[in-house]
């Protein structure tokens, strides 16, 4: 599904290069559930952002569904992630001014899906996550777990092939976190959605099929489960 070859990212600080990602190569196949771990500052989030095309590496080759991302223009890249990738964030990043249903609907608006179709898809999603009763509430009226549920529903609405999750349970208590991880497992197993998550938690990492440990911008170890 995606392939990173000799990816590096560094900042020029004075005469020195300050590496955040240092020559990482990585392949992820369709249907995988990858967990990325590592201490603060090891480059986990940067790696995830590069995979999600939100950030650009300084050098290296990046292929996504056989497209050479490193050669694409900004517009083409955004078209690509719009079509294939759903994002889930630690801080949920719901839009405060929008209701639950409208938050979930937003990606469809940007993909020019027709109004009636959108309504049907949002209704399905609300149903599936059992949040129909909350559809007219605003994010501020929900608990953290519920907000993350909405965040995931929003990430899934456009039927992405890949979910990128940056510490999805970081702001949640352990019970809520467990529910979210169960949901991920179900999506991965039953719907075949590829998932890459960044996490601090050993326990959550084990939901995945492969754990990649980063240290100082390099892959320190890979553990297949």
């Amino acid at each position: 599904m995606l392939s990173l070859q000799h990816i590096s990212k560094y900042y020029q600080v004075g005469g020195n290069k300050n590496y955040v990602i240092n020559d990482i190569s990585l392949n992820v196949d369709e249907g995988e559930f990858v967990s990325i771990m590592g201490p603060s500052g090891s480059g986990k989030s940067t790696l995830l952002n590069i995979i999600g095309m939100l950030d650009e590496p300084t050098n290296g080759y990046h292929y996504f569904v056989d497209q050479p991302v490193h050669q694409l223009k900004e517009k083409q890249r955004s078209a690509l992630y719009k079509q294939y990738i759903g994002f889930v964030f630690q801080a949920y990043h719901l839009i405060d001014e929008l209701t639950v249903a409208e938050n979930i609907e937003t990606p469809l608006i940007y993909q020019d899906v027709k109004g009636s179709e959108r309504k049907a898809m949002v209704a399905d999603m609300l149903d599936r996550f059992q949040i129909v009763g909350k559809k007219d509430l605003f994010p501020a009226q929900l608990s953290g777990g519920q907000q993350q549920l909405v965040g995931i529903a929003r990430a899934l609405i456009a039927k992405p092939k890949l979910i990128l999750a940056d510490e999805p349970t970081g702001n949640l208590n352990s019970k809520q976190g467990e529910e979210i991880m169960e949901l991920f497992r179900k999506l991965n197993k039953e719907d075949g959605v590829t998932i890459i998550q960044v996490t601090h938690s050993e326990k959550n990492a084990e939901y995945g099929s492969r754990i990649i440990n980063l240290l100082d911008g390099k892959i320190e170890s890979i553990k297949n489960l």
Binding site: S78, F87, H93, I95, D96, P107, A158
Partner: peptide, 16 residues
């Protein structure tokens, strides 16, 4: 800025 970022991640173009 955050709202703009979220919308862009969700696929919004600058024009929108």
């Amino acid at each position: 800025a955050r709202e703009t970022g979220v919308r862009k991640v969700l696929g919004a173009g600058t024009a929108q």
